[in-house]
Amino acid sequence: MSLHLGKGTAPKVRRYPKNNQTFTWQQFILPIVLLIIWQMFFELGLIRSIVLPPPSTVMKTIGELLQNGQLFKHLGFSLIRVLEGFSLAVLFGLTLGIAMGLFRNVYLWLDMLIQVLRPIPPIAWIPLAILWFGIDEMSKIFIIFLGAFFPILINVIEGISQTDHKFVEVAKVLEISRLKFTSKIVLPGALPSIMTGLRVGLGFSWMCVVAAELIAGTEGIGYMIMDARQLAQTDVVLVGMLTIGITGKCFDYMLKALERKLLRWKTTYQGA
């Protein structure tokens, strides 16, 4: 570097660590090995099909359920419920979280209530949900909403509260308005935590969809699993479980992509 930075002497920009998230081969080895062992156990007669049907049977069942449209029908219902419940949780979780994070008074008034409500598992709300919203969609969406709402809320508040005091001083010295301070310093700083909240919340939504579908109804992946359980169709149970797992992973992938886009400035530790 020279004192007078001419064209040719400009210091080089340090490269971004590349964290593009394409699939790598390592991710697939373990699942494939497990599938092979699982199939072998069955071939060797070590496990009975009723206890754990082998991958070959599960694949066949997937084929059947795809062909008769059952899988897509159930997945479609669950998907819409998750999206509705999760969207509501995002809406309320973000709004309330930002209000509680920014305004001390809102926090003081609401914190105790939230801390008491938070540990109650969504499944315990089912009786009340049915009484309040009936046995249709609303009660199911409410259960999913509950599952996603608290992780989002807590992470938003946490993210805002971790605003670096050093940046607060910078804002003071530069006499930045409260609005600009919030939008340019507090919220972008809270974004990593907010994104974590969204991802955890979305995961909880999928966990809760099964619980929600315990409430009356004849559609949804959760229903499909419960129905298959009563009919001792273990293979269908497995198909349902796999479907939730894979769909959940896809959703998380999308959120992670969004996160990468929004947090371009951030370098993440990817392990040694």
Partner: peptide
């Protein structure tokens, strides 16, 4: 009695906002 734009300050740590570009950081205030 408080901070003001008649005074600028440079801290020991640069205190740049990591999510803002050089231009955005400079025009922040």
């Amino acid at each position: 009695v408080g901070p003001g734009l008649d005074r600028g300050i440079v801290f020991q740590e640069h205190r740049l906002l990591p999510w803002m570009t050089v231009t955005e950081n400079i025009t922040l205030g």
